[in-house]
Each structure stands twice: as structure tokens, then as C-alpha cells.
Design a protein around this nucleic acid. Sequence first.
DNA 1: ATTACTGCAAAGGCTTTGCATTGTA
DNA 2: TACAATGCAAAGCCTTTGCAGTAAT
Lengths: 151, 151
Amino acid sequence: MPHIIDEAEATLHQRGFKVTPQRTLLLQVLAAQSSHLDAEEIYALAHAQDASISLATVYRALNLYTELGLVDRRYVEPEHRREVYRLADGPEQHYLTCLRCGTRVLIATDLLNSMARELVRRKGVSVTSACACFTGYCPDCTAALKREGKL
Amino acid sequence: MPHIIDEAEATLHQRGFKVTPQRTLLLQVLAAQSSHLDAEEIYALAHAQDASISLATVYRALNLYTELGLVDRRYVEPEHRREVYRLADGPEQHYLTCLRCGTRVLIATDLLNSMARELVRRKGVSVTSACACFTGYCPDCTAALKREGKL
DNA sequence: ATTACTGCAAAGGCTTTGCATTGTA
DNA sequence: TACAATGCAAAGCCTTTGCAGTAAT
């Protein structure tokens, strides 16, 4: 996906931000992911390619990309304290965090977008970003718990 | 609503937790609210009645109440870092945080519950809690921005 | 009399920030 | 050359936790 990276760098340029090796590397790391990663994970992947990159730079780049709409930032249950990021080129995506095994179940649905559209229509607000998160049990753990009679 | 408080205290008792003046006070504070408050706000309200109560106690009680299902804990945009709490006796409630004036617009809808039910049906997961939050502009700011041609 | 709860202060986890330096445009 | 971006380390913000003392059952 060099496309996405090129476009992102064009956006940077065009908005007066500089294209640095660190920013490019982070875009590459992000482009290689299919779901959201937290800053620490992104840092680890980037650090493997360039040991001199710092966590602060990762955070600064992710914040910048989020502001520019290049990245989708999100918070996941149950902590909700850790932010996770992903290139903003895909469809709506949410997560259910399993209380038993910790898995994050990916949820692809357009329901939140519909919800946002309805709010715009009925309440007169405007929505710039929306986020939904679920806590519960993944399919495997749900099945296991039912087998054990605990659910 | 002494009802709700009595019921909550009965739950505490019945689950082997002690009913302390601090816990009762916090229930009273919560019962007097119609929307979610953060820990600091709850602490301030409680502290006004009993200056000896501590923030740690507030956090511990809110965590306990949340575990017992007595309180609905939620995270609001754009920070998502601050938790907000409310007695869990009402219908589904979400917020849109206005980027311009900071207002939290209350959103009453059952959409998230429907979404959760659909997940259960289609994915085989189980959902114990769900949360949605929106960032954007409140009706007033939306109107103002449109007037200024900025939206 | 037990055992849980409280207040205090310190620690924790994640993110941001100040500052001197480096690098892009 | 000018100004933004980086790395480092320290600070910040909210929440949790250890401990000794206190109170509920």
C-alpha cells in the first residue's frame, strides 16, 4: 500500500508539516496492520526498524495523524485508558474485549455510523467522531462458560 | 429516591459488604444526579456534606458499585481518560462532547442495546457492557458554525 | 472480636511537555 | 537559514494501592 503512504505524506506536506524518516516509518508500520494497535506496540514495531526512534515521537506523530484524519484513534474496554490506532482507510470497526481470555473480537458493522447519522438528523448536532466498545466474552469463552453452566 | 438507595444498601449487605456512612453518602449524591459525573465531581459533592471523606474512598466505592451493577461507568470523549459514573437505574444514555463549547449533549437511544443484541445473535459472543461516545458539535455550535460558513 | 473499610500518601500506567539538538524545506 | 521535529527525561493526570488505624456486624 504505498498509495496510502504517499497520500498521507502529501497531506503532511500540503499542510505545512515536514516529512521525516520517523513519520514515514510510522506510516509504513501502520499500513502493515489490519487492526488497531496501541502506542507501545507501534513503537516496538518501529523501533525494530530504527532503534533510534523514541516513544515521544510515536505519540506526537499519532496525535498529528489523528488530527489530520489519517489515523483512527480509539479506546478499548475494559481499561479504556490505553489508546489504539489504525490508519483511517477502512470501514467502521469496533472491538469486544473478552473478560476471560483477553481476546479482542473485531466487529465490522455500520451501526454506529447509522446511529451518528440519526443523531445529526434528529438532534441537529454534528458528529466528527464516534466510538463504541463492548466488554463480554468471545465466542469460544461464551461456549466454554455455557458448557460449564456459568453463563 | 430513598428506594434506590435502600435497594443498593440491601445489595451491599447481602453480598457481604459493609454499609458505611461514606457509602451511603455516595449513594445519596449519585441518586441526586440525572447524568454522569466524574470522580472528582462526586468527591466534591460528597465532601461538601462530610469533609472527612477521601478521594480514595470515592474511587473504591464507585468501583464496587460498578462491579455490583449498581452504577453505570462510562468514558467520555474527547479525553476518554476520565471515567464518569451514574446510578444504573435508567435507560441507555450516551454523550456527545462538543469540541467548541465543551457541552455534553445527552443522547437517549436504544441503538447500542440493539447493536449488542445483534452481536450476540450473529457472532455468538456475550456482551456484559457496551459504551458509545461521540465527538462533534452541539446544536448551538453547529448552528453557529454553519452561520459562519465553517461547517 | 473479626474482618472489612477508611484516610493518607505514595506508587502506577499512559500520555504529554520542556529543552537543547538535529534535520527538513 | 529558519523553523519544525526529535530524543531524552521529567512532569502530568487520573486511578490504584499499601499500610496503620477505625468502625461495622
